[in-house]
Nucleic acid binder design. Structure first.
Lengths: 340, 340
DNA sequence: TTGAAAGCGCTAACAG
DNA sequence: CTGTTAGCGCTTTCAA
């Protein structure tokens, strides 16, 4: 700890302190096994003594390899993405790779900026949410010459590889389950987000399967901004005000469904006797509500894991298997779907 | 788009395509204003045509400057950190800096690893949650010779700068507010996390201020794992089972408080008539519950903003002002504290 | 098992 | 306003 200056330490400093060549110090720091135990110890002692932290900027430039994987998601607030990220980290870390996360706020222009920024660090791969990207973004992804995995959604054609669920099918299956239970007068409550393509696809699949069952959506409402719980409450109140004949409410996510549930129970409305409910996502955060809301698991953690596995395999030169991985979400009936 | 090979593009390719020297291309790409409009256009056209993305690894090495700021937080799942991050991004982006986020899972060893990893990229600054770090971690932070801002907490001595609130004081103030309202038989429900120092400090401050008011905590419970909402429910049920005389419950976070609230209301227990409640964090996520739970805002977004401001100022050579910024959280009485 | 030399792709510094 | 030269701190490659 006798350094006084502010110059960052380099390999040369370690080399001088340990009396070993820079090259050999480098070998030790990269855990290569072609170094004698004695030399290794000398080097590690010097590294500890000086507090040397290798410079990966230089290392990356020299080796043309960087252990970063770019991960691009729309938002952290969403409650959906923390779990995806955790699945990604889990797998990448085991392979010595490091996720670097960027956020797009659901804005295509911002997605382009973030992508450009991340690609400028020459990562080993890219994991990006969604299949819908601007032309410049797709061009960048193609030109990057690295593994690219688009996640969450498989209703479309990926640039390279994809891992997700079919949101259209998720919507259809929930519609079928609702119809099978005998509900016929159905309302939909969701987010007004033209750029949330997955929510849109679920909605489309839902309406389509209802139609196939000879049922038309009886009412719908879309919100934007504000607390989802409070919005679910308001929208539910408003919708039942104008469409009191409804017997089922399908919400585009579990949080607004929870808001609706709380309001309905306060009104003394019997769930699911008088009115059935379903949401989407399978948020364990919400375990502990007075009813378990029927929902559909989006396989978030598994999507993260599989996507990371594809990147890690490709980086390591292993065969990653199929290009498009479609996971199958399962309906969790909870207490608000099945009539006794 | 006529390239066939997989060699990544370099400045030289752009230089050749545009008939301008590498150096001038570099100037254009860094938005320097000492380039003629005509030359600039030629270069940008070539860049677009080729789809060139600059290599920041090389750029960083040459300039000894990197626009990254390391941000180290315990967990994404926490609902607390997304908002801090958003405050950080907001300010950093305006200064051309880019946050890079790492996660420690509340584990000191993992914190060391993540910190070492991030410092190896020679970022322009570090923002790290908490004041408690292992000796090696503190040594790394000191030796890094860059702005380091410890956030969330100001009860302690930072390595360099700090922005946060006093959690001890937050606990004390909530205790005073509770006593002022006339409650005397108080229970505490929190997380069993020896490594969550901020929760511990709030608890200590709370107990201390009760004692000063001549009141001793009557019951306490700690949980770990599982859904916070469900745990709040269970713990509340159990605590009231064994200590039915309690007239107030203080929860270490809003989510378990919400679970408790839901259970209590189902039991028909009058809130706050029979029992007062308070949580901590000011989670807007929970707006829409049947009662607004009394809570204390942790100033999350503002903490992120101020911390980022300090880093950005230091990087730009501006005077960042005071070394320790203590924000003052305010009690939000909601509907569950004040007896009518 | 160790060392010496030659870059990686860019930018600082200086010259024109 | 534009170009030339000399590195940045590592790792690759080859030789000992």
């Amino acid at each position: 700890m006798s350094r006084q200056d502010k110059r960052p330490l380099t390999l040369r400093d370690v080399s001088e302190a340990s009396g070993v060549s820079e090259m050999t110090v480098s070998r030790v720091l990269r855990n290569r096994d072609d170094v004698s135990a004695r030399t290794r110890e000398k080097v590690l002692a010097a590294v500890r003594e000086l507090g040397y932290v290798p410079n990966r900027i230089a290392g990356g430039l020299a080796s043309q390899r960087v252990n970063l994987v770019a991960v691009i998601v729309p938002s952290f607030g969403n409650l959906v993405f923390p779990e995806v990220l955790s699945g990604i980290s889990e797998v990448l870390e085991a392979d010595g790779l490091q996720p670097v996360v960027g956020m797009t706020d659901y804005l295509p222009k911002k997605e382009e900026r973030v992508l450009h920024e991340m690609l400028s660090w020459r990562p080993s791969g890219v994991i990006v949410a969604g299949l819908e990207h601007s032309d410049p973004a797709r061009a960048m992804l193609r030109a990057a010459h690295m593994p690219v995995v688009e996640i969450m959604d498989t209703d479309g054609e990926p640039v390279d590889a994809a891992v997700g669920i079919s949101h259209r099918r998720a919507g259809r299956e929930m519609a079928r389950a609702i119809l099978a239970e005998g509900y016929r007068r159905i309302g939909f409550l969701g987010t007004k987000m033209p750029l949330d393509h997955r929510a849109r696809k679920r909605f489309e699949g839902f309406v389509e399967a209802l139609a196939k069952g000879g049922v038309e959506l009886e009412d719908r409402a879309f919100y934007s901004g504000g607390s989802a719980l409070a919005k679910g409450r308001e929208m539910t109140r408003d919708m039942l005000g104008r469409s009191p004949e409804l017997d089922f409410l399908y919400y585009s996510n579990d949080l607004i469904a929870a808001g609706g549930l709380l309001w309905l129970m306060e009104q003394g409305i019997e769930i699911p006797g008088r009115l059935g409910l379903a949401g989407f996502n399978g948020l364990t955060l919400l375990d502990g509500l007075p009813r378990r809301i029927a929902t559909m698991d989006a396989c978030r953690r598994e999507i993260g894991r599989r996507a990371a596995r594809i990147v890690a395999d490709r980086v390591a030169g292993r065969d990653p298997g199929e290009r498009i991985v479609t996971l199958t979400p399962t309906i969790d009936e909870g207490d608000t779907l099945r009539r006794r």
